[in-house]
């Protein structure tokens, strides 16, 4: 049976439109059994795009009040690139506390984890998972799912950029001959040590090439990366 992350990336691969991206975000919320999932991007031209599960009335109110100016999540994550638990943010300002109270009233959960994304040519996006629960439960959730959430956030961003085809268009993410060689040898059934020896590189270098290829292909793991590369004719085994 496919793992949860494999399911997610398979589904992401099939997304073609922004409407489908919105439905995928709703599906992610149900899959991870959290209150909300939010993807928000600003492209280089400064045009915003969001796919999210918050109540539309809260989104309208947020935009109308221009809450991006005082929202500690935006202020604390903008131009960062490490995952941020909302507890680490500065909520001490009176305006921030008032904002939080309003958000909670509007159905926003008290816990959040936001993954800031630095994309090609400095593009910025933010992926957030939000929930209502105790600190202990939340710590258990984030510890268990952080790896998946980091990966999903970046794949979602790649997909959004691909669809929008704006100034941040990702050009077909070509794999270099070295990456293709590495995937081909693994596809032939070689171990990482054997493949590294064949390519005359260290096993760590091979691992980095594979990790890089996996990311460019939008794959869940190495096996999946090999399968995807084969399916789209990038490698022949």
């Amino acid at each position: 049976m496919a793992s949860r992350i494999e399911n997610v990336v398979e589904r992401l691969q099939q997304v073609r439109t922004l409407d489908e991206l919105q439905r995928l975000v709703e599906w992610l919320r149900d899959l991870y059994q959290v209150d909300h999932v939010i993807y928000h991007a600003v492209n280089r031209a400064g045009e915003p795009y969001a796919a999210l599960t918050y109540a539309p009335s809260w989104v309208d109110h947020y935009l109308e009040q221009d809450y991006g100016r005082i929202d500690p999540v935006v202020l604390g994550c903008y131009q960062r690139f490490h995952p941020v638990d909302w507890k680490q943010l500065d909520w001490s300002a009176r305006s921030a506390r008032a904002f939080l109270a309003e958000a909670l009233d509007a159905g926003v959960g008290n816990q959040g984890l936001s993954v800031p994304i630095r994309g090609p040519s400095g593009q910025f996006a933010l992926f957030t998972v939000n929930h209502s629960c105790s600190d202990t439960e939340w710590a258990r959730f984030t510890t268990a799912h952080l790896d998946d959430l980091i990966l999903i956030s970046h794949y979602l961003n790649q997909k959004a950029l691909e669809i929008m085809r704006g100034s941040d268009r990702v050009p077909d993410r070509p794999l270099s001959p070295r990456e293709l060689d590495a995937l081909t040898l693994l596809g032939m059934g070689m171990s990482r040590a054997q493949a590294a020896e064949r390519l005359r590189i260290s096993e760590h270098t091979l691992r980095v090439y594979i990790e890089s290829a996996r990311f460019k292909l939008g794959a869940a793991n190495t096996t999946h990366a090999v399968a995807l590369a084969m399916a789209c004719g990038k490698i022949i085994v």
């Binding site: 980091i150 980095v208 990311f215």
Partner: peptide, 12 residues
Amino acid sequence: LTGGVRIKSPRI
């Protein structure tokens, strides 16, 4: 220096 590989990953 990296064999033409543009290394990209959120984990690197």
